[in-house]
């Protein structure tokens, strides 16, 4: 049977779902309102009313810099987005936190197979092929730096470096999907993203002079 993402999100909202990353979602007089969690008490916010506005709101941080990684904890402040229904909320969340609703539902339904970092790097070609030289120790430092929730990325990591290789520099809950607080939409990472792969390339090149 076809999945109905809008219906699933509506059920989640009605069951008490109230935050997604740095966004809080509340009932509005007609529909739903999204705003930055740190703007919950502010009354001087600029109001937007189309789900498409989410793309511009998500694209730049408070200083106007590009946010290529949308789950980085630097969502801009100062706005409220009022939307008519759960479908619009769904589309807006796809701009704020791309793929996160879909990956959450797929994970819940057992459709997500996390991919070890070394398998991700093993399939790289072109300029990223060099990342296959990344050692486990380098991977541990890399992930601790790139993926940390305070300043890196808000997602929960579902993948491993490889079997039996953990990342001791990050807290255990960073790797536990069931550690997501009640009422929060799980932001789940099934596989190291392009930013980690690009950072791995830089680390290998910087730390292995012969690899140049």
């Amino acid at each position: 049977m076809m999945r109905d993402t809008t219906l699933e999100l509506e059920r989640w909202l009605q069951a008490g779902g109230k935050t997604a990353g740095q966004i809080c979602i509340t009932r509005a007089s007609e529909g739903w309102e999204l705003r930055h969690t740190e703007d919950a008490q502010r009354e001087d916010l600029t109001t937007f009313s189309k789900y498409e506005d989410a793309r511009a709101l998500a694209n730049l941080d408070d200083a106007g810099a590009f946010r290529p990684l949308k789950t980085a904890p630097n969502l801009r402040h100062g706005w409220r987005l009022v939307l008519p229904d759960a479908h619009a909320v769904c589309l807006a969340l796809d701009y704020f936190y791309p793929a996160m609703v879909g990956v959450w539902l797929a994970h819940r339904d057992g459709e997500v197979t996390p991919v070890d970092l070394h398998d991700t790097l093993a399939r790289q070609t072109g300029m990223y092929r060099i990342t296959q030289k990344l050692t486990d120790e380098q991977a541990q430092r890399l992930i601790a730096r790139q993926c940390r929730s305070n300043g890196g990325c808000l997602k929960t990591i579902l993948w491993r470096i490889r079997e039996n290789i953990s990342v001791p520099l990050l807290p255990p809950e960073k790797f536990r999907a069931d550690a997501t607080p009640a009422g929060a939409l799980p932001l789940l990472c099934q596989e190291a993203c392009n930013f980690v792969v690009a950072a791995a390339r830089k680390m290998v090149k910087d730390e292995t002079p012969l690899a140049l």
């Binding site: 789950t71 879909g102 539902l105 099934q190």
Partner: peptide
């Protein structure tokens, strides 16, 4: 994002 790896979900 969304990445090619995520999109089918």
């Amino acid at each position: 994002e969304p990445s090619l790896r995520q999109i089918l979900h």
